[in-house]
Simulated assay, not measured.
Amino acid sequence: MSMSTSKLRLGPLPKTETVKLTISLTTALKTDLDRYAALHAQTYGDPVNAATLIPHILQVFIARDRGFKRAVLPRTVATQRNEKAASD
């Protein structure tokens, strides 16, 4: 494999509580996940399989989705102050 291992978007995996969820993937996506898992293991020294990576990849994706953040984040402190001042 001639992939660069200098930096992966997904860093070392944290220990977390989990729930089981069953999903279906295309064969191409499963192949890519297996390749990513192999590269992740090579980069960080801990063997990991694709199924273990999926929740972490999704977490990173959601954390970086600006549209999602705007839709679900609470109003800013400045907005709350302006609303309070208007009601006084």
Rank of each mutant, 00 (worst) to 15 (best):
K15C: 07
Q59R: 15
K15P: 09
S24P: 04
Y36R: 03
R9H: 08
R70I: 04
V48E: 00
T18A: 04
V72N: 03
S4N: 11
R75V: 06
R70E: 09
A71S: 12
T22H: 05
L58V: 00
A38R: 07
D32T: 11
R75M: 12
A86V: 03
T18V: 09
R64T: 15
L8C: 05
D88Y: 14
V60M: 10
E83I: 11
G11T: 00
E83M: 09
T79H: 08
T52Y: 07
L29A: 13
G67C: 01
Y44W: 09
D65I: 02
K30F: 10
R81A: 10
A38D: 13
D34E: 13
A37Q: 03
R70N: 08
A28R: 06
N82G: 12
T76E: 06
G67A: 02
T52G: 00
A51H: 05
I57G: 00
A63G: 01
R75L: 14
E17L: 11
D32H: 13
N82W: 15
V77D: 11
D46T: 13
M3W: 14
T76S: 12
S6M: 13
P14V: 01
Q42D: 10
A50W: 10
R66W: 03
L10V: 00
S4H: 07
G67E: 11
P74I: 00
I23C: 05
S87H: 08
L25D: 05
K84V: 14
A85L: 11
D46I: 02
H56Q: 04
Q80K: 11
N49T: 02
T18Q: 06
M1C: 11
I23P: 02
T22K: 12
T43C: 07
L21C: 07
M3Q: 14
E83L: 04
P12F: 00
A41F: 08
A50M: 02
A50V: 05
R81M: 13
S24T: 14
K30M: 06
R66Y: 04
R66V: 10
D46S: 15
V48T: 15
D32M: 09
K69H: 11
R35M: 04
G45A: 10
S4Y: 08
D46L: 09
L53G: 07
A86D: 10
L39P: 02
R9L: 12
Y44C: 04
L39A: 05
T5V: 08
T22L: 03
L13V: 10
A37V: 04
A86W: 02
D46Q: 03
R64I: 01
S2K: 06
S24D: 03
A78L: 15
L29V: 02
D88W: 14
A37P: 01
L53P: 06
L33E: 06
P14D: 03
D88S: 14
S2M: 08
A38P: 01
Q42M: 06
A38E: 05
A78K: 15
L73K: 12
S6W: 07
A38C: 10
M3R: 15
E17V: 07
R81G: 05
S2W: 02
P74M: 03
V60L: 12
A38I: 06
A71K: 13
L21I: 12
